[in-house]
């Protein structure tokens, strides 16, 4: 028993230390501070937040971030340099914050417009696999896909867990819009992907 826990601990450590096998070479570089938000109120951004904390990256985590937050920060003289919007809708999440997918799409649209105005880099992310795609949702509920449509084609970079691209949806957006696509297989590989993206 003890042996198994050791193996697991080692594997966890290895996940942090060893370079991810499937992470692609990244040409896009991102700057800090970064605003981390969601389109659809899924818990996806939390996964990125965990690694930001560990990597000491300067970030603000706000699931309901608005265009106003970007301009306020600019007024302060400390503008955000990059924006990560994690796609995927959570019915529970949206219910909890009393917003609809329409509200989310509207907020995101304004947020991206303001980011563009400020010349920030926008990253469209999807980090929860097929469970956070329409296939994992109620039949007829396409809010996951709507959030992807609202963010990904407008992004400078796509950051996707590979099993979420089973149907090559993100590959198609990447090829069609010529947006670089960074994929990773294991959650723990996200740490290195983010490290590379924010490396000076």
């Amino acid at each position: 028993m003890k042996c198994i826990s050791w193996i697991i601990t080692l594997a966890v450590v290895a996940g942090f230390v060893l370079p991810p096998a499937s992470a692609q070479k990244q040409t896009v570089k991102l700057d800090q501070p970064v605003l981390l938000t969601s389109c659809g109120q899924s818990p996806g951004p939390l996964k990125i937040k965990v690694f930001f904390g560990r990597l000491n990256i300067d970030y603000v985590y706000n699931l309901q971030a608005s265009a106003g937050d970007l301009s306020a920060k600019k007024k302060e003289g400390k503008p955000f340099k990059s924006l990560i919007i994690v796609t995927g809708a959570s019915l529970k999440g949206m219910g909890a914050s009393k917003v609809s997918i329409e509200d989310e799409l509207d907020r995101t649209k304004k947020l991206i417009a303001e980011a563009r105005k400020q010349g920030m880099k926008v990253v469209g992310a999807h980090v929860e696999g097929m469970e956070r795609r329409a296939q994992g949702a109620t039949p007829g509920d396409n809010s996951d896909e709507l959030s992807i449509d609202a963010v990904c084609p407008q992004s400078d970079l796509l950051l996707v867990r590979k099993d979420g691209d089973e149907d090559k949806r993100f590959t198609a957006i990447s090829t069609g819009k010529k947006i670089p696509l960074v994929t990773f297989e294991k959650n723990m590989e996200l740490s290195d992907v983010l490290k590379n993206l924010y490396q000076k």
Binding site: V12, P43, L46, V50, K92, A96, E128, E131, K186, N187
Partner: peptide, 26 residues
């Protein structure tokens, strides 16, 4: 954060998918 790490680690290392949901406030 604790739940996010647990969810990610289990999915990565133990061969079963473990999602994550926020507790609704209302």
């Amino acid at each position: 954060e604790l739940a996010a790490v647990v969810s990610m680690t289990l999915t990565d290392l133990e061969g079963f998918k473990m999602g994550l949901e926020f507790s609704p406030k209302n």
